[in-house]
Computed example of a mutant assay.
Amino acid sequence: MPHGRTPASSQPTRPPGVVGSSTSYAAPPPPPPTYATRTEEALLRAPTRINQSHLHPDKINGALWIGVDPEVHEFIRATWQGNFRGPWQSWLKVPVEKRTSWWHSFIQQYYWEDQFHEESYFKWKLQTRVTICRRISQKRQKNKQPSYISATDWETILANWSTAEAKAKSQSAAESRFAALPRLKMHVHGAGPHTFANIAYNMVVEEGMEGPVSYPDLVRKTHCRKDGTFLDERAEALVLEVEQAVKEMLQDGSPLGDSQTDSTAATRTSKRLLLNKEYIKVIISPAHSWTDTGTIYGLGNLQCKNKRPSESVPAALKREINMEMRPQASAAQASQSQHHSPSHSAAPPQGQAQPKGHGQDPTPPHDQPQDPGDAQPQHLITTNNSALDRLCNELGL
Score class of each variant (00 low, 15 high):
Ile50Pro: 07
Glu71Val: 08
Val68Gln: 06
Ile60Lys: 10
Thr79His: 01
Lys59Tyr: 05
Leu55Val: 15
Asn51Tyr: 15
Ala63Asp: 06
Ala78Ser: 10
Thr48Ala: 15
Thr48Arg: 14
Arg77Ser: 06
Glu71Gly: 10
Leu64His: 04
Leu64Thr: 02
Leu55Thr: 10
Ile50Leu: 06
Pro47Asn: 11
Ser53His: 11
His54Glu: 13
His56Ile: 04
Trp80Asp: 01
Arg85Pro: 08
Val72Glu: 02
Leu64Ala: 08
Gly86Cys: 02
Glu40Asp: 14
Leu55Ala: 14
Ile66Tyr: 03
His73Thr: 15
Leu64Arg: 03
Ala78Trp: 01
Ser53Glu: 12
His56Thr: 07
Gly67Arg: 03
Lys59Ile: 05
Lys59Gln: 12
Ser53Cys: 10
Ala42Gly: 15
Arg45Leu: 12
Thr48His: 14
Leu43Ser: 06
Gln52Met: 15
Ala63Met: 08
Leu55Tyr: 10
Glu74Arg: 04
Ala78Leu: 06
Gly62Arg: 07
Trp80His: 05
Asp58Asn: 13
Glu41Leu: 10
Asn83Ser: 05
Asn61Phe: 11
Gly62Ala: 13
Leu64Gly: 01
Glu74Ile: 04
Trp80Lys: 03
Arg85Trp: 10
Gly86Asp: 01
His54Tyr: 14
Ala42Phe: 14
Trp65Gln: 01
Ala46Val: 07
Ile76Glu: 01
His56Asn: 04
Ile76Met: 00
Leu55Asp: 12
Pro47Phe: 08
Asp69Ser: 07
Asn61Ser: 13
Ala46Arg: 11
Glu41Ala: 10
Leu44Trp: 07
Phe84Lys: 00
Phe84Glu: 00
Ile76Trp: 00
Glu71Gln: 08
Asn61Cys: 11
Leu64Lys: 05
Leu64Phe: 05
Ile50Glu: 14
Pro57Met: 07
Glu41Ser: 11
Arg49Asn: 12
Ile76Pro: 02
Asn51Lys: 14
Ala46His: 09
Pro47Met: 09
Leu55Asn: 05
Gln52His: 15
Gln52Lys: 15
Ile50Val: 15
Glu71Trp: 03
Val72His: 03
Ala46Asp: 13
Gly82Asp: 01
Asp69Glu: 09
Leu43Cys: 04
Ile50Gly: 09
Val72Phe: 03
Arg49Lys: 13
Ile76Ala: 02
Ile66Phe: 03
Asp69Trp: 06
Trp65Leu: 03
Ala46Lys: 11
Leu64Tyr: 02
Glu41Pro: 04
Glu41Cys: 08
Ala42Asn: 15
Leu44Cys: 08
Asp69Cys: 07
His54Phe: 13
His73Gln: 13
His56Leu: 05
Glu74His: 07
Ile50Asn: 08
Ile66Gln: 01
Gly62Asp: 07
Gln81Ala: 13
Gly86Ile: 00
Ala46Glu: 10
His54Ser: 12
Leu43Tyr: 06
Ile66His: 01
Phe84Ile: 01
His56Tyr: 05
Gly82Leu: 04
Gly67Val: 05
Glu41Asp: 11
